Amino acid sequence: MQLLQKLSPLAAALAFTFSAPAMAAAPLAGTNAPGFFRIMLGDFEVTAISDGTVDLPMNKLLQQPAAKTDQELARAYLGNPVETSVTGYLVNTGAKLVLIDAGAGNLFGPTLGKLLANLKASGYQPEQVDEVLITHMHPDHVGGLAANGQAAFPNATIRADKHDTDFWLSQANMDQAPADSKGFFQGAMTSLAPYVANQHLQPFNGASEITPGIRAVASYGHTPGHISYMVESKGKKLVVMGDLIHAGAVQFDHPEVTIGFDTDPKTAAQARKQVFTAAAKDSELIGAAHLPFPGLGHLRSTGKAYQWVPANYTQLR
């Protein structure tokens, strides 16, 4: 009898539970927060801005046996294809607002093309951008420059290495290119056309000071005029390295591994080694467009390999 008395409240609760109407689960939200992340570099404000992600079949693109790539990706809890970030970096020097790379625009489908929306979410407007610096003229770095034939950054000067502008904006080169490569030329031409028309495209040649606090560093190979940008304020340095790396799970341990997108694989591998070595030696912060967003961190040299140390989360005060 005592046991029944003890059980009766539990039984009543269970009876109520099973007789109460079922509560529907909340629907899946399906979105993340706006894609921007902000740090201070000396007196400069740097905002990483997400353009979205794209799935890349790394076991087909990386120039090593597919089984080895699969094994190295699995060790990092990744499979194929790898969801790969595309990121631009907005630098407010106090005197200028400078964007490094413009994302894919509408050239790569619905998972990319979010840079403009995220730039606005970060507190800036595209009309405020003074200069857009291009690491190289592949579509996922220049596609966001234009929409419907109009300049997305109407007041900006576009800067890119002359080796890249001469190569990708050449009709003769496009005519001679294989059919599966012509889209790269078409994307560059369409994206740059409004700036060519209003004379806002200003190429430079190799290592150059672009604006006080930002200089170009030649890192040719991925494309004929692939450039990294060194951003420096009060002795703090950030090197925005474009496409020197695509797959951190493989290329930090094996920087010699190239990718099918490289125009000159041997030179691209040498450039990666050179920039990685300097960044590790000088403790430079790195901004890498295709590492997981925000793609900011440091490198530690470990013999012939490198260890990636992601930047600590920070809340500006």
Rank of each mutant, 00 (worst) to 15 (best):
M1K: 15
L3S: 14
S8C: 11
A13I: 08
F16I: 15
T17N: 13
A20N: 01
P21D: 14
P27T: 00
L41D: 03
E45T: 15
S50M: 07
D51V: 00
D51F: 05
N59Q: 11
K60W: 08
Q63Y: 05
Q71M: 09
E72C: 11
N80A: 08
V82Y: 02
S85M: 10
V86H: 03
V91M: 08
K96Q: 06
V98N: 01
L99P: 03
L99M: 00
G103V: 12
N106C: 07
L107C: 08
K114F: 12
L115M: 15
Y124G: 05
Q125T: 11
Q128D: 08
D130H: 04
V132R: 03
P139V: 10
G144N: 05
A147W: 01
A151R: 09
F167P: 08
L169E: 06
Q171M: 12
M174L: 10
Q176M: 13
T190D: 12
T190Q: 09
S191A: 11
L201D: 04
P203N: 11
S208F: 13
G213K: 04
A216G: 02
A218N: 07
S219V: 12
S219I: 10
P224I: 12
G225F: 10
G225W: 02
H226F: 10
H226Y: 13
I227S: 03
G235Q: 09
K237C: 07
K237G: 02
G242H: 00
G248C: 09
V250E: 05
V250H: 08
Q251K: 05
D253Y: 09
P255N: 10
E256G: 14
T263I: 03
K266H: 11
A271K: 07
K281L: 09
A288V: 04
A289D: 01
H290T: 11
L291I: 13
P292N: 04
P294L: 01
G297L: 01
G297I: 11
S301D: 12
A305N: 06
V309K: 14
T314W: 09
R317I: 15
